[in-house]
Simulated assay, not measured.
Amino acid sequence: MSPELEKCARNLLVCEKSNFRDERARYDTHVSKHFFNYKVSVVIPECASLPASTRTVIDSFSSYYCVRDLPAYKLLEKDILQKVVTKGHFYALSYGTRIDEDNTIAFLPSGHLVMSVDKDTYELLGLEGKPSQYTHRKVQRYVVNVDLTDKSMSPGSKKFQRLVTSLKERVPIKCDFLIATKMTANDDVESLHSLMSQYSYKEYSAAVQTHTLKETPCPSLHSSDLRGKEESCDPHRFLEWLGAVNMDITCDNEASSFLSTYACPEPRGVMSQGLLCTITGFLIPEDIHALLMELRNYFDQPKFTSWLSMTVHGFADSPVSWGTTEHGFLKGGEHFYNFVCFQNQDYWLHMATGSHDGCPP
């Protein structure tokens, strides 16, 4: 076997156990700070179809836009900056740019502009930044993080004008952007549409797929334990099982012509039927939080299962994972989190990244 295949890339997994009713629970913070998400997968054991109330929440997910060849400085124009970008519910991510090779840009709902750029671009921009945490012996990439809500960055100030000049004249960066927002004010929405109408753009809605699981081996989970006991399901193995279910990989470990087989972790049972619902698109935290709250309510009526799961995957080429924590790319670019919600309102939270990310919060 190739030495490269024998090596398993280092990963980071943070596990947390709490209860939704606990005032100290931080689930909403973790959801709200994972800004750029492309897929949500929900697994509900012993469920034949998506509940109507859950479907209603999913159908209410915000639409999003793909704007072609949008110059980055256009999002810094005074009207857009004040009515859209710094209002607290604006998300924009460069699309089709690779975090390990290209210049990537993100506008966060916190009002931050984050750019991960190569060395040549950084030197031409002339902006203050710092070397990427995940670089070679010689620095090849830099991260520029600008707080657009800071008083020193108000339109007309020297620092703000320097930023605009850098993106408009020194390095006129333009790229495709994915854009989404939760704005409700008509004037603000019109300002955004007015900008997008100057370029080629298309509106999209989240895509939803459901799949019925039949006679599937399933881990036996108990809310009282997350890890550390022999009879409990190890978090890594549980997430591995979820991945197998999502990829429709058989978990029965039967002998076959394959070189390797996979078995569901112990302790386990068999669910006679189950539901896998997958939502894909440019999914914002507000909508994901609404779905999580709806899934909490699933157990308001008696059910044949004591738990369900929701997994949220971030964009591999986003310059950030949680908050402004730098995201890098080694082999997979993964950063995701998973909630296991129990009947008694306990939950497990798994937050995972590859080796080129800061530690999850």
Results as ranks from 00 to 15, higher is better:
residue 291 L to T: 02
residue 143 V to E: 08
residue 249 I to T: 07
residue 192 L to K: 00
residue 154 S to A: 14
residue 187 D to R: 14
residue 198 Q to Y: 14
residue 27 Y to A: 00
residue 269 G to M: 10
residue 21 R to L: 11
residue 83 K to R: 15
residue 42 V to N: 03
residue 6 E to I: 05
residue 296 R to G: 03
residue 17 K to L: 05
residue 303 K to I: 00
residue 181 T to I: 02
residue 54 T to D: 03
residue 325 T to K: 13
residue 65 Y to C: 02
residue 45 P to N: 01
residue 217 P to T: 10
residue 159 K to L: 08
residue 145 N to G: 06
residue 7 K to N: 08
residue 29 T to N: 04
residue 116 S to E: 08
residue 193 H to T: 07
residue 62 S to W: 04
residue 284 I to N: 01
residue 167 L to Q: 07
residue 127 L to P: 10
residue 204 Y to E: 07
residue 331 K to G: 00
residue 36 F to P: 05
residue 200 S to D: 14
residue 204 Y to C: 03
residue 105 I to C: 15
residue 297 N to V: 00
residue 288 I to N: 00
residue 37 N to Y: 08
residue 287 D to Y: 03
residue 56 T to L: 10
residue 308 L to C: 05
residue 110 S to V: 09
residue 74 K to Q: 13
residue 258 F to H: 09
residue 62 S to N: 14
residue 256 S to H: 05
residue 331 K to R: 12
residue 87 K to M: 10
residue 266 E to V: 04
residue 51 P to S: 08
residue 115 M to R: 11
residue 232 S to E: 12
residue 76 L to V: 13
residue 193 H to D: 02
residue 335 H to R: 08
residue 73 Y to L: 02
residue 218 C to Y: 12
residue 278 T to E: 12
residue 312 V to H: 02
residue 40 V to T: 13
residue 34 H to S: 12
residue 334 E to C: 02
residue 288 I to R: 01
residue 163 L to T: 03
residue 241 W to K: 02
residue 262 Y to R: 11
residue 62 S to G: 08
residue 7 K to P: 00
residue 352 A to D: 03
residue 209 Q to A: 04
residue 196 M to V: 06
residue 328 G to F: 10
residue 353 T to V: 05
residue 31 V to A: 03
residue 349 L to M: 12
residue 148 L to P: 05
residue 7 K to E: 10
residue 324 T to Q: 12
residue 24 R to I: 01
residue 331 K to V: 12
residue 182 K to D: 09
residue 348 W to R: 00
residue 210 T to Y: 09
residue 177 F to E: 04
residue 25 A to H: 04
residue 176 D to R: 11
residue 6 E to R: 13
residue 3 P to H: 11
residue 329 F to C: 06
residue 188 D to V: 01
residue 190 E to W: 14
residue 243 G to Q: 09
residue 223 S to Q: 07
residue 159 K to V: 04
residue 312 V to G: 01
residue 42 V to R: 01
residue 161 Q to R: 10
residue 335 H to T: 03
residue 326 E to I: 04
residue 35 F to K: 04
residue 120 D to N: 15
residue 17 K to A: 12
residue 289 H to Q: 12
residue 182 K to W: 01
residue 129 G to T: 13
residue 235 P to T: 05
residue 53 S to F: 15
residue 302 P to A: 06
residue 133 Q to I: 05
residue 313 H to L: 07
residue 349 L to V: 02
residue 355 S to Y: 07
residue 322 W to Q: 10
residue 168 K to M: 13
residue 280 T to Q: 09
residue 329 F to G: 03
residue 76 L to C: 12
residue 180 A to N: 11
residue 251 C to N: 10
residue 137 R to G: 03
residue 98 R to T: 08
residue 54 T to A: 07
residue 228 G to R: 14
residue 105 I to Y: 15
residue 284 I to V: 14
residue 51 P to N: 11
residue 193 H to C: 04
residue 169 E to M: 08
residue 128 E to Q: 15
residue 171 V to G: 01
residue 8 C to P: 00
residue 158 K to C: 04
residue 109 P to H: 10
residue 166 S to M: 05
residue 256 S to Y: 00
residue 182 K to N: 08
residue 338 N to I: 00
residue 323 G to V: 04
residue 184 T to P: 01
